[in-house]
Amino acid sequence: MKEMDAAACKELRKKIYLTAEKGGLGHLASCFSCVEILYTLYHKVLHISKETLKAADRDRLVLSKGHAGLALYHVMALEGLMEEAVIDTFLQPGSHLGGEPCMRDLEGIEATTGSLGHGLSMSVGMAMAQKMDGLSARTFCILGDGECEEGTVWEAAMSAPAFHLDNLVVILDCNQIQKMTTVEETIGLTNWKEKWTDFGWLVKEVDGHDTDALEQVFKEENTSGKPLFVIAHTIKGKGVSIMENNPIWHFKLPNRKEKKVFLAELDITEEELE
């Protein structure tokens, strides 16, 4: 992984934390889990720009695990697709920016998400429309592993291969943790590779924090005729040691003592926090 990318992702985590702290709430751990995924997609893969936000042949990204919205906003801002000033309004009175992406108020958000199990189905519709219109554009969808407990995920999982949507890419942010505990403890087996392969997808596995590996997997030509399912192995809370792999951080900000760790590990000064 290049130093530049690592630095950019560290800066993103810092900004995500500062915005959540300023707003007073945030799904930090879920955001930190998919920083590299979002960064790689917007910075290196998606054919999209400020000018082409509405172009019919743009690539689309749906954040099905909508609670990582804050990560999406900051990555979009980094790529010039959203004003930093808009992000400053996060959770402020009259704001158009909350914890879950909402397309009513924000240009560039492809789908309103928040209730889990919706994004992949909407992505199927988008990818289908791209095919109907003869476009070479792709639709990307970021799914949580806990989210796979929703039944509609599997309705969509069956239908995308049936419709031959090889322009659809699903990235499983596989951090193994949901709100209360681990995904494994909640639903037992988590053999995603076998499951999605059986459903008719081309499945690849990748280190979800390695931007080079992610880039490669997204750019490899898909000649299988199948939709692509990328299992991105990630760490929930990645980047702050006390938050990593601990479910209690699902929807929590650090207390005074914990804050010191955040500041130290994310290179944040006391002044920046104020």
Binding site: A56, E110, A111, H118, S121, M122, S123, V124, G125, M126, A127, M128, A129, Q130, M132, D133, G151, T152, E155, A156, M158, S159, A162, F163
Partner: peptide
């Protein structure tokens, strides 16, 4: 080309219809 059978999956069909509509389709 204008008829799609989603199978017995009404929720998925409705959400996919929303996705199709974002691209100018009228499902």
């Amino acid at each position: 080309k204008q008829m799609v059978n989603f199978g017995i999956a009404e929720e998925h069909m409705v959400a996919a219809a929303a996705g199709l509509a974002t691209a100018g389709k009228i499902p």
